[in-house]
Design a protein around this nucleic acid. Structure first.
Lengths: 118, 118
DNA sequence: CTACACCTTCAAGCTGGGTTGAAGGTCAAG
DNA sequence: CTTGACCTTCAACCCAGCTTGAAGGTGTAG
């Protein structure tokens, strides 16, 4: 499949795929006789994997070594996932603290708490 | 107070203060006869306010109009705070979803759950 | 008078994750 | 043969929020 089609199917831009290749997140694509990149269907799943990893808080650089391994879990992976879990937990705690701070700030600006129950 | 001292006292860099001024987050500082910026103590509190706002998830651009008003709450402020609260809530929900996804992923990699309770 | 720390300005660089554009090659249809 | 849609590369730009550097002025201590 050519880059345009796979991009459309995966819901990403073609430039993004080339960018991932340039950054070493994706391996160099096999090329047709004309020099065009030629992708297997499976790249769609790989791109999905990358998106998921990004959602999980991994940077592209962190993803780099793992996007192509996918199935073949290397030993270090669970460890990294647990480390990331700790990070996410810390992040949630910080966000909850922010939330509390915001609520408190709103409360000080609105002493209407007793009058209006809205 | 000169910029270096106020920076040290506020725990920020001098370049940052100049940057804030250039960006319009802080008003132009009064200058001494030599052209040096001359700050009142109160700027330390203002810088603290900016840091707090950033922690609360406001961008510098969002902060811009409010860092100098501080006390004098403009009418639109509570509204903005409530909007930001909604944003923070959405952010927390997303983070919790990430967390759940991570936990699930870790679980699939470790069917040791029953054997090792470590 | 000389050193040295501090101040000034403006311009450029950094990180991350891309997008946008120019210049050119390829391929199928009409 | 020309048009148009696609592909290629490479370089430059975008955002935020700063930092760093160059080039020069100021203030004070010895």
């Amino acid at each position: 499949m050519k880059i345009g089609e796979i991009a459309k199917r995966a819901g990403v831009s073609a430039s993004r795929i080339r960018f991932y290749e340039a950054q070493g997140i994706l391996p160099p694509a096999p090329r047709g006789a004309n020099g065009y990149r030629d992708y297997p269907e499976s790249l769609i799943a790989t791109l999905g994997f990358i998106e998921q990893a990004q959602r999980l808080g991994f940077s592209l650089r962190e993803i780099a070594g793992h996007a192509t391994l996918e199935g073949k879990v290397c030993d270090a992976l669970p460890e990294k996932l647990r480390a990331k879990l700790a990070e996410v937990d810390a992040h949630i705690a910080a966000a909850l603290a922010r939330r509390a701070e915001l609520v408190a700030l709103i409360a000080t600006l609105e002493p209407d708490e007793e009058k209006a129950a809205a």
